[in-house]
Write a protein that binds this DNA or RNA. Structure first.
Lengths: 223, 223
DNA sequence: AATGAATGTAATCGATGATTACATGATTGT
DNA sequence: ACAATCATGTAATCATCGATTACATTCATT
Protein backbone atom coordinates (compact mmCIF):
# COMPACT_ATOMS: atom_id res chain seq x y z
CA UNK A 1 0.00 0.00 0.00
CA UNK A 2 2.54 2.55 1.10
CA UNK A 3 5.62 0.80 -0.22
CA UNK A 4 6.58 0.67 -3.85
CA UNK A 5 6.65 -3.08 -4.22
CA UNK A 6 3.36 -4.65 -3.19
CA UNK A 7 4.88 -8.08 -2.58
CA UNK A 8 7.34 -7.03 0.09
CA UNK A 9 6.89 -6.15 3.72
CA UNK A 10 9.24 -3.26 3.47
CA UNK A 11 12.90 -2.53 3.94
CA UNK A 12 14.42 -4.05 7.03
CA UNK A 13 17.92 -2.84 6.33
CA UNK A 14 18.25 -1.35 9.82
CA UNK A 15 17.72 -4.79 11.19
CA UNK A 16 15.47 -4.65 14.23
CA UNK A 17 12.46 -2.57 13.39
CA UNK A 18 9.60 -4.67 12.05
CA UNK A 19 8.08 -8.02 12.91
CA UNK A 20 10.78 -10.53 12.31
CA UNK A 21 9.35 -13.74 10.96
CA UNK A 22 9.53 -12.79 7.32
CA UNK A 23 12.74 -11.15 6.34
CA UNK A 24 11.34 -9.49 3.25
CA UNK A 25 14.48 -9.52 1.15
CA UNK A 26 16.35 -12.64 2.10
CA UNK A 27 17.50 -13.68 -1.31
CA UNK A 28 19.43 -10.53 -2.04
CA UNK A 29 20.59 -10.25 1.53
CA UNK A 30 22.09 -13.73 1.37
CA UNK A 31 23.96 -12.89 -1.81
CA UNK A 32 25.28 -9.74 -0.23
CA UNK A 33 26.41 -11.49 2.94
CA UNK A 34 28.03 -14.25 0.91
CA UNK A 35 29.97 -11.63 -1.04
CA UNK A 36 31.05 -10.10 2.25
CA UNK A 37 32.15 -13.47 3.59
CA UNK A 38 34.12 -14.07 0.42
CA UNK A 39 35.87 -10.73 0.70
CA UNK A 40 36.82 -11.18 4.30
CA UNK A 41 37.69 -14.83 4.60
CA UNK A 42 38.23 -16.21 1.14
CA UNK A 43 36.24 -18.80 -0.72
CA UNK A 44 36.34 -21.33 2.10
CA UNK A 45 34.72 -18.84 4.46
CA UNK A 46 31.55 -18.83 2.38
CA UNK A 47 28.99 -21.24 3.72
CA UNK A 48 25.23 -21.24 3.47
CA UNK A 49 24.97 -21.31 7.21
CA UNK A 50 27.32 -18.39 7.71
CA UNK A 51 25.37 -16.30 5.22
CA UNK A 52 22.17 -17.24 7.03
CA UNK A 53 23.76 -16.34 10.33
CA UNK A 54 24.77 -12.91 9.07
CA UNK A 55 21.29 -12.39 7.71
CA UNK A 56 19.92 -13.29 11.11
CA UNK A 57 17.96 -16.26 9.87
CA UNK A 58 17.81 -20.01 10.47
CA UNK A 59 20.26 -22.37 8.74
CA UNK A 60 17.47 -23.84 6.64
CA UNK A 61 16.00 -20.54 5.47
CA UNK A 62 18.36 -20.04 2.51
CA UNK A 63 17.13 -23.27 0.97
CA UNK A 64 13.75 -21.61 0.42
CA UNK A 65 15.48 -19.32 -2.06
CA UNK A 66 18.25 -21.51 -3.43
CA UNK A 67 17.82 -25.24 -4.00
CA UNK A 68 21.46 -25.87 -3.06
CA UNK A 69 24.71 -24.13 -2.30
CA UNK A 70 25.78 -24.06 -5.92
CA UNK A 71 22.73 -22.04 -6.88
CA UNK A 72 23.49 -19.51 -4.17
CA UNK A 73 27.09 -19.30 -5.33
CA UNK A 74 25.90 -18.84 -8.89
CA UNK A 75 23.80 -15.89 -7.79
CA UNK A 76 26.84 -14.54 -5.97
CA UNK A 77 28.87 -15.01 -9.14
CA UNK A 78 26.25 -13.14 -11.15
CA UNK A 79 26.48 -10.15 -8.87
CA UNK A 80 30.27 -10.27 -8.87
CA UNK A 81 30.31 -10.56 -12.65
CA UNK A 82 28.01 -7.56 -12.91
CA UNK A 83 30.49 -5.46 -10.95
CA UNK A 84 33.41 -6.87 -12.91
CA UNK A 85 31.81 -5.99 -16.22
CA UNK A 86 30.89 -2.52 -15.02
CA UNK A 87 34.49 -1.82 -14.13
CA UNK A 88 35.76 -3.05 -17.48
CA UNK A 89 33.20 -0.94 -19.28
CA UNK A 90 34.25 2.07 -17.25
CA UNK A 91 37.92 1.57 -18.06
CA UNK A 92 37.11 1.23 -21.73
CA UNK A 93 35.03 4.40 -21.65
CA UNK A 94 37.90 6.27 -20.03
CA UNK A 95 40.47 5.09 -22.55
CA UNK A 96 40.51 7.89 -25.09
CA UNK A 97 43.14 6.41 -27.37
CA UNK A 98 42.00 5.49 -30.83
CA UNK A 99 44.49 2.63 -31.15
CA UNK A 100 42.52 -0.61 -30.78
CA UNK A 101 45.49 -2.38 -29.23
CA UNK A 102 45.74 0.29 -26.57
CA UNK A 103 42.06 -0.18 -25.88
CA UNK A 104 42.55 -3.92 -25.54
CA UNK A 105 45.39 -3.25 -23.14
CA UNK A 106 43.10 -1.00 -21.13
CA UNK A 107 40.63 -3.85 -20.84
CA UNK A 108 43.40 -6.16 -19.74
CA UNK A 109 44.53 -3.72 -17.08
CA UNK A 110 41.02 -3.27 -15.77
CA UNK A 111 40.64 -7.05 -15.69
CA UNK A 112 43.83 -7.49 -13.69
CA UNK A 113 43.05 -4.56 -11.46
CA UNK A 114 39.68 -5.91 -10.49
CA UNK A 115 41.06 -9.38 -9.87
CA UNK A 116 43.78 -7.92 -7.67
CA UNK A 117 41.31 -5.96 -5.59
CA UNK A 118 38.65 -8.68 -5.47
CA UNK A 119 40.57 -11.94 -5.49
CA UNK A 120 37.86 -14.16 -4.07
CA UNK A 121 35.13 -12.65 -6.21
CA UNK A 122 37.36 -13.28 -9.18
CA UNK A 123 37.83 -16.83 -8.05
CA UNK A 124 34.11 -17.32 -7.79
CA UNK A 125 33.30 -16.12 -11.28
CA UNK A 126 36.20 -18.15 -12.67
CA UNK A 127 35.25 -21.37 -11.01
CA UNK A 128 33.16 -23.94 -12.76
CA UNK A 129 32.81 -26.21 -9.78
CA UNK A 130 31.26 -23.97 -7.17
CA UNK A 131 28.93 -22.33 -9.67
CA UNK A 132 26.69 -23.46 -12.50
CA UNK A 133 28.08 -21.26 -15.25
CA UNK A 134 26.31 -23.00 -18.10
CA UNK A 135 23.00 -22.75 -16.30
CA UNK A 136 23.21 -19.00 -15.86
CA UNK A 137 22.15 -16.93 -18.89
CA UNK A 138 23.42 -13.84 -17.13
CA UNK A 139 26.96 -15.15 -16.73
CA UNK A 140 27.07 -16.44 -20.27
CA UNK A 141 25.78 -13.18 -21.69
CA UNK A 142 28.20 -10.96 -19.80
CA UNK A 143 31.10 -13.17 -20.77
CA UNK A 144 30.05 -13.18 -24.40
CA UNK A 145 29.80 -9.40 -24.37
CA UNK A 146 33.39 -9.02 -23.24
CA UNK A 147 34.44 -11.40 -25.98
CA UNK A 148 32.46 -9.41 -28.53
CA UNK A 149 34.06 -6.15 -27.47
CA UNK A 150 37.53 -7.57 -27.85
CA UNK A 151 36.65 -9.24 -31.13
CA UNK A 152 35.53 -5.86 -32.48
CA UNK A 153 38.77 -4.23 -31.38
CA UNK A 154 40.82 -7.03 -32.91
CA UNK A 155 38.88 -6.71 -36.15
CA UNK A 156 39.68 -3.03 -36.24
CA UNK A 157 43.32 -3.73 -35.51
CA UNK A 158 43.39 -6.28 -38.31
CA UNK A 159 41.86 -3.80 -40.74
CA UNK A 160 44.56 -1.32 -39.89
CA UNK A 161 47.14 -4.00 -40.57
CA UNK A 162 48.41 -4.04 -37.02
CA UNK A 163 48.22 -7.74 -36.37
CA UNK A 164 50.96 -10.23 -37.03
CA UNK A 165 48.53 -13.16 -36.95
CA UNK A 166 45.29 -13.54 -38.86
CA UNK A 167 43.50 -15.90 -36.52
CA UNK A 168 41.72 -13.40 -34.28
CA UNK A 169 39.94 -16.09 -32.33
CA UNK A 170 43.28 -17.59 -31.44
CA UNK A 171 44.65 -14.20 -30.44
CA UNK A 172 41.70 -13.68 -28.20
CA UNK A 173 42.15 -17.00 -26.48
CA UNK A 174 45.83 -16.25 -26.03
CA UNK A 175 45.05 -12.85 -24.57
CA UNK A 176 42.52 -14.28 -22.21
CA UNK A 177 44.86 -17.06 -21.20
CA UNK A 178 47.53 -14.53 -20.37
CA UNK A 179 45.40 -12.28 -18.19
CA UNK A 180 43.63 -15.24 -16.66
CA UNK A 181 46.98 -16.82 -15.89
CA UNK A 182 48.29 -13.62 -14.33
CA UNK A 183 45.14 -13.13 -12.29
CA UNK A 184 45.15 -16.69 -11.09
CA UNK A 185 48.84 -16.57 -10.28
CA UNK A 186 47.94 -13.62 -8.12
CA UNK A 187 44.93 -15.10 -6.35
CA UNK A 188 46.66 -18.47 -6.04
CA UNK A 189 49.65 -16.79 -4.44
CA UNK A 190 52.28 -17.75 -7.01
CA UNK A 191 54.12 -14.46 -7.17
CA UNK A 192 56.27 -15.05 -4.10
CA UNK A 193 57.82 -17.97 -6.01
CA UNK A 194 58.78 -15.48 -8.69
CA UNK A 195 60.50 -13.02 -6.41
CA UNK A 196 57.79 -10.49 -7.06
CA UNK A 197 56.92 -8.58 -3.91
CA UNK A 198 53.37 -7.48 -3.27
CA UNK A 199 54.18 -3.87 -4.05
CA UNK A 200 55.60 -4.85 -7.44
CA UNK A 201 52.73 -7.03 -8.54
CA UNK A 202 50.67 -4.32 -10.18
CA UNK A 203 53.63 -3.02 -12.17
CA UNK A 204 54.80 -6.47 -13.14
CA UNK A 205 51.40 -7.46 -14.43
CA UNK A 206 51.21 -4.27 -16.48
CA UNK A 207 54.63 -4.93 -18.00
CA UNK A 208 53.76 -8.52 -18.82
CA UNK A 209 50.61 -7.30 -20.50
CA UNK A 210 52.62 -4.82 -22.56
CA UNK A 211 55.12 -7.50 -23.52
CA UNK A 212 52.33 -9.70 -24.78
CA UNK A 213 50.49 -7.00 -26.69
CA UNK A 214 53.73 -5.84 -28.30
CA UNK A 215 54.28 -9.38 -29.45
CA UNK A 216 50.97 -9.36 -31.26
CA UNK A 217 51.52 -6.32 -33.42
CA UNK A 218 53.43 -6.30 -36.65
CA UNK A 219 56.94 -5.01 -36.42
CA UNK A 220 56.83 -1.55 -35.02
CA UNK A 221 58.80 1.16 -36.79
CA UNK A 222 61.11 1.94 -33.88
CA UNK A 223 60.87 2.32 -30.14
CA UNK B 1 63.77 -60.92 9.55
CA UNK B 2 63.16 -62.34 6.14
CA UNK B 3 62.15 -59.02 4.59
CA UNK B 4 64.64 -56.50 3.36
CA UNK B 5 63.66 -53.61 5.59
CA UNK B 6 64.08 -54.47 9.25
CA UNK B 7 61.81 -51.66 10.44
CA UNK B 8 58.74 -52.81 8.63
CA UNK B 9 56.38 -55.70 9.12
CA UNK B 10 56.46 -56.51 5.47
CA UNK B 11 54.62 -55.66 2.30
CA UNK B 12 50.91 -55.77 2.64
CA UNK B 13 50.17 -54.70 -0.90
CA UNK B 14 47.94 -57.69 -1.46
CA UNK B 15 45.84 -56.52 1.41
CA UNK B 16 44.91 -59.44 3.59
CA UNK B 17 48.00 -61.46 4.28
CA UNK B 18 49.70 -60.41 7.48
CA UNK B 19 48.52 -59.40 10.91
CA UNK B 20 46.47 -56.30 10.38
CA UNK B 21 46.95 -53.92 13.25
CA UNK B 22 49.95 -52.17 11.86
CA UNK B 23 49.69 -51.30 8.23
CA UNK B 24 53.40 -50.99 7.70
CA UNK B 25 53.36 -48.38 4.98
CA UNK B 26 50.41 -46.19 5.72
CA UNK B 27 51.94 -42.86 4.93
CA UNK B 28 52.78 -43.67 1.33
CA UNK B 29 49.62 -45.66 0.90
CA UNK B 30 47.53 -42.68 1.95
CA UNK B 31 49.29 -40.44 -0.54
CA UNK B 32 48.72 -42.99 -3.26
CA UNK B 33 45.04 -43.40 -2.45
CA UNK B 34 44.58 -39.65 -2.27
CA UNK B 35 46.11 -39.33 -5.73
CA UNK B 36 43.71 -42.00 -6.94
CA UNK B 37 40.74 -40.22 -5.40
CA UNK B 38 41.84 -36.98 -7.05
CA UNK B 39 42.12 -38.65 -10.44
CA UNK B 40 38.75 -40.28 -10.25
CA UNK B 41 36.57 -37.74 -8.53
CA UNK B 42 38.31 -34.40 -8.66
CA UNK B 43 39.66 -32.33 -5.84
CA UNK B 44 36.44 -32.44 -3.83
CA UNK B 45 36.56 -36.23 -3.78
CA UNK B 46 39.76 -36.19 -1.77
CA UNK B 47 39.09 -36.50 1.93
CA UNK B 48 41.22 -37.84 4.72
CA UNK B 49 38.53 -40.32 5.61
CA UNK B 50 38.13 -41.59 2.07
CA UNK B 51 41.87 -42.15 1.78
CA UNK B 52 41.80 -43.97 5.10
CA UNK B 53 38.88 -46.06 3.90
CA UNK B 54 40.72 -47.06 0.73
CA UNK B 55 43.76 -47.93 2.80
CA UNK B 56 41.54 -50.07 5.01
CA UNK B 57 42.27 -48.13 8.13
CA UNK B 58 40.36 -46.14 10.73
CA UNK B 59 39.40 -42.48 10.10
CA UNK B 60 41.83 -41.28 12.75
CA UNK B 61 44.81 -43.28 11.57
CA UNK B 62 46.01 -40.77 8.96
CA UNK B 63 46.46 -38.17 11.67
CA UNK B 64 49.31 -40.26 13.07
CA UNK B 65 51.21 -39.50 9.89
CA UNK B 66 49.92 -36.06 8.97
CA UNK B 67 49.01 -33.42 11.56
CA UNK B 68 46.17 -32.17 9.36
CA UNK B 69 44.65 -32.48 5.94
CA UNK B 70 46.81 -29.76 4.46
CA UNK B 71 49.95 -31.70 5.31
CA UNK B 72 48.57 -34.78 3.60
CA UNK B 73 47.66 -32.73 0.55
CA UNK B 74 51.14 -31.24 0.54
CA UNK B 75 52.62 -34.72 0.45
CA UNK B 76 50.24 -35.53 -2.38
CA UNK B 77 51.37 -32.39 -4.17
CA UNK B 78 55.00 -33.39 -3.73
CA UNK B 79 54.40 -36.72 -5.41
CA UNK B 80 52.37 -35.09 -8.18
CA UNK B 81 55.07 -32.48 -8.69
CA UNK B 82 57.68 -35.21 -8.93
CA UNK B 83 55.78 -36.84 -11.77
CA UNK B 84 55.17 -33.48 -13.42
CA UNK B 85 58.84 -32.59 -13.34
CA UNK B 86 59.82 -36.01 -14.66
CA UNK B 87 57.57 -35.59 -17.66
CA UNK B 88 58.93 -32.13 -18.41
CA UNK B 89 62.47 -33.40 -18.14
CA UNK B 90 61.62 -36.25 -20.48
CA UNK B 91 60.13 -33.91 -23.08
CA UNK B 92 63.18 -31.69 -22.88
CA UNK B 93 65.48 -34.65 -23.32
CA UNK B 94 63.53 -35.75 -26.37
CA UNK B 95 63.63 -32.35 -28.02
CA UNK B 96 66.64 -32.55 -30.23
CA UNK B 97 66.41 -29.06 -31.69
CA UNK B 98 69.23 -26.73 -30.84
CA UNK B 99 67.01 -23.63 -30.96
CA UNK B 100 66.41 -22.53 -27.35
CA UNK B 101 63.00 -21.14 -28.21
CA UNK B 102 61.97 -24.50 -29.63
CA UNK B 103 63.14 -26.11 -26.42
CA UNK B 104 61.12 -23.67 -24.38
CA UNK B 105 58.12 -24.49 -26.52
CA UNK B 106 58.70 -28.18 -25.87
CA UNK B 107 58.61 -27.50 -22.15
CA UNK B 108 55.38 -25.55 -22.58
CA UNK B 109 53.82 -28.40 -24.51
CA UNK B 110 54.82 -30.94 -21.92
CA UNK B 111 53.43 -28.67 -19.22
CA UNK B 112 50.09 -28.36 -20.99
CA UNK B 113 50.01 -32.01 -21.88
CA UNK B 114 50.48 -33.12 -18.33
CA UNK B 115 47.88 -30.67 -17.05
CA UNK B 116 45.42 -31.95 -19.64
CA UNK B 117 45.95 -35.54 -18.65
CA UNK B 118 46.13 -34.93 -14.91
CA UNK B 119 43.79 -31.99 -14.30
CA UNK B 120 43.24 -32.55 -10.60
CA UNK B 121 46.87 -33.28 -9.86
CA UNK B 122 47.69 -30.06 -11.66
CA UNK B 123 45.14 -28.27 -9.56
CA UNK B 124 46.68 -29.62 -6.39
CA UNK B 125 50.22 -28.51 -7.16
CA UNK B 126 48.93 -25.12 -8.33
CA UNK B 127 46.84 -24.47 -5.26
CA UNK B 128 48.20 -22.50 -2.36
CA UNK B 129 45.21 -23.03 -0.12
CA UNK B 130 44.96 -26.80 0.09
CA UNK B 131 48.71 -27.24 0.35
CA UNK B 132 51.55 -25.60 2.24
CA UNK B 133 53.79 -24.72 -0.67
CA UNK B 134 56.15 -22.50 1.28
CA UNK B 135 56.59 -25.16 3.93
CA UNK B 136 57.72 -27.81 1.46
CA UNK B 137 61.37 -27.66 0.41
CA UNK B 138 60.65 -30.30 -2.21
CA UNK B 139 57.99 -28.25 -3.95
CA UNK B 140 60.06 -25.11 -3.86
CA UNK B 141 63.11 -26.87 -5.19
CA UNK B 142 61.36 -28.54 -8.10
CA UNK B 143 59.68 -25.30 -9.03
CA UNK B 144 62.96 -23.41 -8.89
CA UNK B 145 64.61 -26.01 -11.09
CA UNK B 146 62.04 -25.52 -13.82
CA UNK B 147 62.59 -21.78 -13.59
CA UNK B 148 66.34 -22.28 -13.80
CA UNK B 149 66.04 -24.46 -16.89
CA UNK B 150 63.97 -21.87 -18.67
CA UNK B 151 66.22 -19.05 -17.52
CA UNK B 152 69.17 -20.86 -19.04
CA UNK B 153 67.33 -21.30 -22.33
CA UNK B 154 66.29 -17.66 -22.36
CA UNK B 155 69.85 -16.59 -21.68
CA UNK B 156 71.02 -18.64 -24.62
CA UNK B 157 68.31 -17.14 -26.78
CA UNK B 158 69.32 -13.67 -25.71
CA UNK B 159 72.96 -14.38 -26.55
CA UNK B 160 71.92 -15.45 -30.02
CA UNK B 161 70.01 -12.20 -30.37
CA UNK B 162 66.68 -13.92 -30.70
CA UNK B 163 64.75 -11.98 -28.07
CA UNK B 164 62.84 -8.82 -28.67
CA UNK B 165 62.84 -7.94 -24.97
CA UNK B 166 65.80 -7.81 -22.62
CA UNK B 167 64.00 -8.47 -19.36
CA UNK B 168 64.25 -12.24 -19.22
CA UNK B 169 62.60 -12.45 -15.83
CA UNK B 170 59.61 -10.66 -17.25
CA UNK B 171 59.54 -12.97 -20.26
CA UNK B 172 59.57 -15.95 -17.98
CA UNK B 173 56.69 -14.65 -15.90
CA UNK B 174 54.75 -13.96 -19.07
CA UNK B 175 55.44 -17.43 -20.39
CA UNK B 176 54.39 -19.03 -17.16
CA UNK B 177 51.28 -16.88 -16.99
CA UNK B 178 50.33 -17.99 -20.47
CA UNK B 179 50.69 -21.71 -19.92
CA UNK B 180 49.26 -21.47 -16.44
CA UNK B 181 46.30 -19.56 -17.82
CA UNK B 182 45.76 -22.11 -20.56
CA UNK B 183 46.05 -25.02 -18.17
CA UNK B 184 43.68 -23.45 -15.70
CA UNK B 185 41.21 -22.54 -18.41
CA UNK B 186 41.24 -26.20 -19.25
CA UNK B 187 41.01 -27.44 -15.69
CA UNK B 188 38.37 -24.86 -14.81
CA UNK B 189 36.31 -25.76 -17.86
CA UNK B 190 36.49 -22.43 -19.67
CA UNK B 191 37.00 -23.74 -23.15
CA UNK B 192 33.35 -24.44 -23.86
CA UNK B 193 32.78 -20.68 -23.52
CA UNK B 194 35.31 -20.20 -26.29
CA UNK B 195 33.72 -22.59 -28.75
CA UNK B 196 36.64 -24.94 -28.43
CA UNK B 197 35.52 -28.55 -28.43
CA UNK B 198 37.32 -31.11 -26.36
CA UNK B 199 38.97 -32.65 -29.39
CA UNK B 200 40.37 -29.27 -30.44
CA UNK B 201 41.80 -28.31 -27.08
CA UNK B 202 45.19 -29.88 -27.54
CA UNK B 203 45.69 -28.27 -30.94
CA UNK B 204 44.40 -24.92 -29.79
CA UNK B 205 46.73 -24.83 -26.84
CA UNK B 206 49.67 -25.68 -29.07
CA UNK B 207 48.78 -22.90 -31.48
CA UNK B 208 48.37 -20.38 -28.70
CA UNK B 209 51.77 -21.38 -27.40
CA UNK B 210 53.29 -20.88 -30.84
CA UNK B 211 51.63 -17.52 -31.19
CA UNK B 212 53.13 -16.41 -27.91
CA UNK B 213 56.62 -17.71 -28.57
CA UNK B 214 56.63 -16.15 -32.02
CA UNK B 215 55.77 -12.85 -30.40
CA UNK B 216 58.85 -13.07 -28.22
CA UNK B 217 61.42 -13.47 -30.95
CA UNK B 218 62.87 -10.65 -32.97
CA UNK B 219 61.38 -10.17 -36.40
CA UNK B 220 61.64 -13.39 -38.25
CA UNK B 221 63.06 -13.35 -41.76
CA UNK B 222 60.01 -14.45 -43.77
CA UNK B 223 56.58 -16.01 -43.25
C1' DA C 1 -12.46 -12.45 7.39
C1' DA C 2 -10.96 -17.00 5.36
C1' DT C 3 -8.00 -19.54 2.52
C1' DG C 4 -3.78 -20.92 0.26
C1' DA C 5 0.78 -19.88 -1.21
C1' DA C 6 5.19 -18.07 0.26
C1' DT C 7 8.49 -17.99 3.66
C1' DG C 8 10.87 -19.08 7.95
C1' DT C 9 11.85 -22.58 12.01
C1' DA C 10 12.99 -26.89 14.43
C1' DA C 11 14.78 -31.21 14.28
C1' DT C 12 17.41 -34.33 12.14
C1' DC C 13 20.78 -36.94 8.87
C1' DG C 14 25.23 -38.19 6.90
C1' DA C 15 29.86 -36.61 5.86
C1' DT C 16 33.95 -34.29 7.20
C1' DG C 17 38.20 -32.53 9.91
C1' DA C 18 39.93 -32.91 14.23
C1' DT C 19 41.00 -34.42 19.17
C1' DT C 20 41.45 -37.53 23.14
C1' DA C 21 42.00 -41.71 25.63
C1' DC C 22 43.15 -46.29 24.91
C1' DA C 23 44.93 -50.72 22.63
C1' DT C 24 48.43 -53.15 20.15
C1' DG C 25 52.63 -54.57 18.59
C1' DA C 26 57.35 -53.69 17.07
C1' DT C 27 62.09 -52.10 18.60
C1' DT C 28 65.57 -52.09 21.61
C1' DG C 29 68.60 -52.40 25.73
C1' DT C 30 70.02 -55.51 29.13
C1' DA D 1 64.79 -64.10 26.45
C1' DC D 2 62.35 -60.39 28.45
C1' DA D 3 60.48 -56.26 29.64
C1' DA D 4 60.28 -51.21 28.79
C1' DT D 5 59.30 -47.94 25.43
C1' DC D 6 57.72 -45.83 21.49
C1' DA D 7 55.35 -45.86 17.12
C1' DT D 8 51.15 -46.83 15.20
C1' DG D 9 46.25 -47.88 14.85
C1' DT D 10 41.28 -47.82 17.11
C1' DA D 11 37.11 -46.12 19.45
C1' DA D 12 34.51 -42.48 20.84
C1' DT D 13 33.42 -37.98 20.48
C1' DC D 14 32.85 -32.90 18.84
C1' DA D 15 31.75 -28.98 15.86
C1' DT D 16 30.65 -27.61 11.22
C1' DC D 17 28.51 -28.17 7.02
C1' DG D 18 25.01 -29.23 3.26
C1' DA D 19 20.65 -31.01 2.91
C1' DT D 20 15.81 -32.73 3.97
C1' DT D 21 11.37 -33.05 6.35
C1' DA D 22 7.56 -31.66 9.11
C1' DC D 23 5.63 -27.78 11.12
C1' DA D 24 4.66 -22.72 12.07
C1' DT D 25 3.71 -18.09 10.63
C1' DT D 26 2.74 -14.39 7.69
C1' DC D 27 1.12 -12.29 3.34
C1' DA D 28 -1.88 -11.76 -0.60
C1' DT D 29 -6.01 -12.76 -2.71
C1' DT D 30 -10.66 -13.78 -2.65
Amino acid sequence: MSTVKPTRTGDREAGEGGSAYHHGNLREELVEQALKLAEEGGLSAVSVRAAARLAGVSPAAPFRHFPDKMTLMTAVAEEAMRRFRAEIALALAQEVADDPMLRIRAIGRAYLDWARRNPTHFEIISSRRSIDFEGSPSLGRENAEIQAQIEALLLEAAQRGLLRCNDRHLIQIAARALVYGLARMLVDGHFPSWQVADAEIEGTMAKVLDLFVDGLVKERAAS
